[in-house]
Computed example of a mutant assay.
Amino acid sequence: MRFTHALTVLAALCLSATGCGGPSPRSASTAPPIAPGHPVTITNCDRTYTFDRAPSRTVLMSGGAVGQVSSLVALGVEKQIIGNAQSYGASDVPGRAEAIDRLPKVKIQEGGWDISREGMLSLRPDFVIGTTGYDFDARNGYATRQELLEVGANTWLPDSTCGGPGTVRGTQTIEDSYDMLRDFGALYGVGGRAEKLVERSKRRIAEIEARVRGGSRPKVMYIIPGMEMGAAEFSSIGANGIWNDIFEKAGGVNAFGGVTDEIFANLSKERVAKTDVDAVVIINWRNPDPDAEATKLFTQFPQWRAAKDKRYVVLSDSAYLGPDNAVAVEKIARMLHPERF
């Protein structure tokens, strides 16, 4: 995942509101049945899309993310996925990484981070899910949203990252995860499942918030070792993202939340050393030994309270937009306020 990129056909079914401009290559006998609640119209990134049927040929772009594919797996619609480029190889939910690994994989373009335009069109998708606007930027070699729409494929992005990481619309919160689940639930005809996931998450987070209410608010670092989001030595420190909401609900605060308007801070070792850090969240992104990364940080910054107390937790997909933010909230809360559990 590198947010300097950051972070690609013929469709079997015409799904756009304006039509595809040509006949569908899929015959009526092989078209998927109309799902409950369809047609569904959504507005995504200021564009309107109408789904006459549930997507049956879904492709997930990478963008370095995993929350979108996790959401589809949690909703039980894996069979509608024909190509997946999202994988951390790790998950905070038992069995999730293995379920994602079983999905049909797609080839990432050589020297790039996602599916090339030619590769995408050859898949004949009817629905393409991205992570940021970069996933549909022709300058990166990817199929644009308009190109995909013209061949019958609707697209979806988180509304907060429509234009790419450099043009973020506000800071993501856990509510954005719920919005994504509800969107996917409606599109795939499993709105009831989506609502159950949302309500279960809300209930658990409310229980955790009640436990930590009134306590101290330790300063937490969020870092993805091995990532390069900029030129500075520490360019993968989370500054403004969904993790800020997760920290707040877990009874903490982002130690680097105000240092930049970007999603990730791009900091020198000297700047990091001057910041008080009480605890660390290590994000495991294809890392063979994330615990060693915590040891490395504590060796570099022994003055931190986090280093003195060896206070850290390793997370992966639950700390991103997705269906499992309650897992991250609970694990961080237990790290920060063990006496409350």
Rank of each mutant, 00 (worst) to 15 (best):
E270R: 08
M227L: 08
D317K: 03
L13G: 07
L148D: 08
A6C: 06
R26P: 00
W156Y: 15
W243N: 10
V280D: 02
G19S: 04
T4G: 12
T167F: 09
E293Y: 01
G163V: 02
R200K: 15
G64L: 00
V313K: 10
W285Q: 10
L60Q: 06
L75K: 07
S71R: 07
R145F: 07
K310P: 00
A231N: 13
A74Y: 02
T8M: 03
A54W: 07
A307H: 09
V277P: 07
L336T: 11
M180D: 12
G238P: 00
F3Y: 10
Y312W: 14
V212Y: 03
S116A: 14
N325C: 07
V281T: 04
G130D: 07
V59Q: 06
T30A: 12
K310F: 00
A333T: 02
S316C: 13
R217H: 14
Q86E: 15
A231W: 03
I332S: 06
I282N: 04
K274L: 13
T295S: 13
Y222G: 14
L7W: 11
G164S: 11
S71L: 08
I205S: 11
T260H: 04
G67K: 05
P125C: 11
R139E: 15
D317M: 08
A54R: 11
S16P: 11
H5L: 05
K296L: 12
Q109W: 03
F136A: 05
D135Q: 15
S62K: 08
K331A: 02
E262S: 14
G252Q: 10
G226L: 12
P33Q: 11
K249A: 07
G241N: 14
T299L: 10
L321Q: 11
R217V: 12
L148T: 09
Y142N: 15
S91K: 09
A99V: 07
N266D: 15
C20Q: 08
R217I: 04
E175S: 13
T132P: 04
A292P: 00
G191S: 15
A186C: 03
S235P: 10
A265W: 04
A328R: 05
Q80N: 14
V190I: 14
T161D: 02
A31Y: 02
D261C: 00
F256H: 01
S216R: 15
G111S: 14
Q300T: 10
K202S: 01
I223N: 10
I263W: 04
Q146M: 06
A12Q: 13
M335E: 04
W285M: 09
C14W: 03
C162F: 10
A97T: 13
S316M: 06
F51K: 08
G257A: 05
K107D: 12
M335N: 05
R200H: 14
P165A: 12
G130Y: 07
I82A: 04
A232C: 06
V253S: 06
P39D: 11
R334T: 07
E228W: 00
A250C: 04
G64Y: 00
K202M: 09
L267Y: 01
A239P: 01
A232M: 12
R203N: 13
E175W: 06
R47W: 07
D245G: 08
V314Y: 05
Y142E: 11
C162H: 11
E147D: 09
